[in-house]
């Protein structure tokens, strides 16, 4: 067998999965005849994996408040956004344990609802590895879990008629207790989140309100014991169309 020599650079590219299929095959053929180098390359790959196992847990740590604050310029940094970031940063479990013990931030509930929902959308919708805590495949579990934590029956609306499939959901800390976030995705990968907060005050207000928070459109409304906010980066009219469907499904 006559196999042309392989450069060390190519061996690194092989270990790092940077080669196309054709080159990869050539490198594999060469390695088959060079057991020492094969062993070395295998170790390089193991070291890459170990780096991930060692440091990937950082990705799942709650983002410290001071860092989220540092990413937002002072002129745009309102009290409500600060509060929302602080809540996000504390992490779901802590937020849940502290529910009721934290004084309210003194903002009208609907305005902060839109900001918190937009921020939760901004933080989680770009997530590739962990967009949700519980995937849609386990919908029954997702519904039971989030209903239990919010203390009321909760069902994610089905938006396949609008081209969006449920990705799953997660639990977040909100101002007055736990908040559920459902995430949807369309065929192009565009994401939509529905943020559901159990509102302290009983309200019959159902008017749709719209806010644009740093480029993220949010339709939000209060309905009985719940506050809802639908966030996405899309045209206002398109988002309104979907918000109407969500509202109708939640109030059959």
């Amino acid at each position: 067998m006559n196999i042309p020599p392989i450069s060390e650079q190519e061996l690194h590219a092989y270990a790092d999965d940077r080669l196309d299929a054709a080159r990869r095959e050539k490198v594999e053929a060469w390695l088959a005849n060079h057991p020492d180098m094969r062993q070395t390359v295998a170790e390089w790959r193991i070291h890459n994996e170990q780096l991930h196992r060692c440091f990937d847990p950082v990705l799942d740590e709650p983002v410290p408040t001071r860092l989220a604050e540092a990413a937002i310029p002072a002129s745009r940094f309102s009290l409500g956004l600060a509060a929302a970031i602080a809540w996000l940063a504390m992490g779901g479990a802590i937020g849940y344990q502290l529910r009721g013990a934290i004084p309210s931030q003194g903002l009208p509930p609907t305005a902060s609802l839109a900001r918190q929902a937009a921020l939760a959308h901004a933080v989680f919708s770009p997530e590739v590895r962990h967009p949700v805590e519980v995937a849609a495949a386990e919908e029954a579990h997702l519904v039971a879990w989030l209903s239990k934590r919010l203390g009321a029956e909760l069902k994610p609306p089905h938006l396949s008629g609008q081209g969006f499939e449920l990705v799953g959901g997660r639990l977040l800390p909100g101002e007055a207790g736990p908040v559920a976030q459902f995430m949807y995705q369309d065929a192009r990968g565009q994401r939509l989140t529905l943020y559901v907060q159990r509102d302290a005050q009983d309200s019959s207000e159902t008017a749709f309100r719209y806010a644009n928070e740093s480029g993220i459109g949010v339709f939000y409304w209060l309905d009985g014991r719940f506050g809802y906010a639908l966030s996405a980066e899309m045209q206002k009219s398109e988002l309104l169309r979907i918000a109407t469907v969500v509202h109708r499904q939640l109030n059959p």
Partner: peptide, 21 residues
């Protein structure tokens, strides 16, 4: 997506690299 949301979304990656570094 807005630039602030874009930057916020990069924070976990920056933290991972900085921790290892």
């Amino acid at each position: 997506m807005s630039r602030h949301a874009d930057i916020v979304a990069e924070i976990p990656r920056l933290r991972r690299y900085a921790r290892a570094l």
